[in-house]
Design a protein around this nucleic acid. Structure first.
Lengths: 224, 224
DNA sequence: TAGATTGTTAATCGATTAACAATC
DNA sequence: TAGATTGTTAATCGATTAACAATC
């Protein structure tokens, strides 16, 4: 941790987040959120967007949005707003996620099929390159352009395709075993759709999807 | 809505979040997060949990967790931790979401089927009471115990079942039309799985699921 | 008792916001 | 030019954390 040095010697530049420094959790979370709305807006053919519009969709204060963005450069045009297309690529650059990322999907049931055939991941530069299942009846069948493989091929595929992200759409009892194998194989991020509480080594990050909890949160603000 | 009264007459008690006051966004979000982990832990048969364990799973600082909780009462036992079962019900009480809530699901495709047959919602007190689709081939078929109905029955069902929450697992082009009808029918919370940017009246809250954006966020911290 | 973990304090740090000049 | 919206300041507020006594 050496930012004491960075701080003291650094001269603040006009648009001045220090490029070497990690974004704070809050900033990274908000930038991701802007990106979500911008991607949707782009898909709907919107060309420019104001900080106020972004605020309406994200529920983040408009001043904060302008502040977050202006830390990295002057992306907007006064009196007009931000160009959607260019802001998308700027934020992706800031989040260092401009490239394509290969992901492996586990579980070829309803949820797995829904994920593999939707473009929610594709829109953000993620490509599902392999689908796995343990059910011999499913192995060999097709989901879109992909052929379902057996879990036992996991290790090879993760290596060959340089897979960093795995998505688990499997029943809870299967999730922990799979998490162990994935960590072992070198996967760094596990996106968990099951309700298992996964134990993983420190270098692996687990993100558990929990729509019901998001709903509880929304419901609280409706009820009060 | 009568908490103005509650506010002015209230005297701050020892563990003293004023019961009449709304939680801040941050506190409500964190409490929801604890609830998620606690629910998983309970399912796995865990009886007590320490603030440190909760911190490991939620990535929230353990001091903050103790602080958040102690604002509402003394729920823990020194030297032991928190009782999982009782903490779940305490937090649900604080979030005022102890009851059962009926939800309507739109879209009987792969995603809709996955949602209807999983217990991710049921575990948190949400019950899917109706599934809708526009496809005449699907209408009348069964998903678990539920019969798929045509969207045209929306209004009646929302009224009869007092539905406040709708989940949209439909293609993007259908989402906005549905959102309009739902707002009209009195639904207050729309959980959107499509990538449409929904316009709704101010009394309606939209929450758009975006796993890819969550992944981008996780990826940023892996890459840096 | 000894060890563990809570509840709480006090100090710091970062997030948030209103306001407005700059400028498209 | 007139209207709109950004970029930025300055002031406030709430979140975060380390530390430790209380106590199970």
């Amino acid at each position: 941790m050496s930012y004491t040095v960075g701080r003291s010697t650094e001269v603040a530049q006009p648009g001045s987040e220090k490029p070497g420094e990690k974004l704070s959790l809050g900033v990274a979370a908000r930038l991701s959120r802007y990106l979500q709305v911008l991607t949707q807006a782009r898909k709907m053919g919107k060309e420019t967007i104001s900080s106020q519009e972004l605020a309406d969709y994200t529920h983040v204060n408009s001043t904060q949005i302008r502040r977050d963005l202006s830390g990295f450069g002057k992306f907007g045009k006064r009196g007009v707003g931000y160009n959607v297309e260019s802001l998308v690529s700027q934020i992706r650059k800031i989040l260092r996620t401009s490239g394509q990322h290969n992901i492996a999907l586990f579980g070829a049931g309803h949820l797995g099929t829904a994920i593999a055939t939707s473009d929610i991941f594709a829109d953000h530069g993620f490509r599902v390159v392999a689908v796995f299942d343990v059910d011999r009846d499913k192995v060999g069948s097709k989901i879109g352009p992909l052929t379902v493989r057996h879990n036992s091929a996991l290790r090879d595929v993760v290596e060959d395709e340089e897979i960093v992200v795995a998505v688990l759409a499997v029943p809870s009892p299967a999730a922990q075993i799979l998490a162990d194998e994935l960590a072992e194989a070198g996967v760094k991020i596990i996106f968990n759709y099951s309700d298992a509480l996964l134990q993983v080594p420190p270098e692996v990050t687990v993100h558990t999807s929990s729509p019901a909890v998001d709903l509880l949160y929304a419901l609280y603000f409706y009820l009060t």
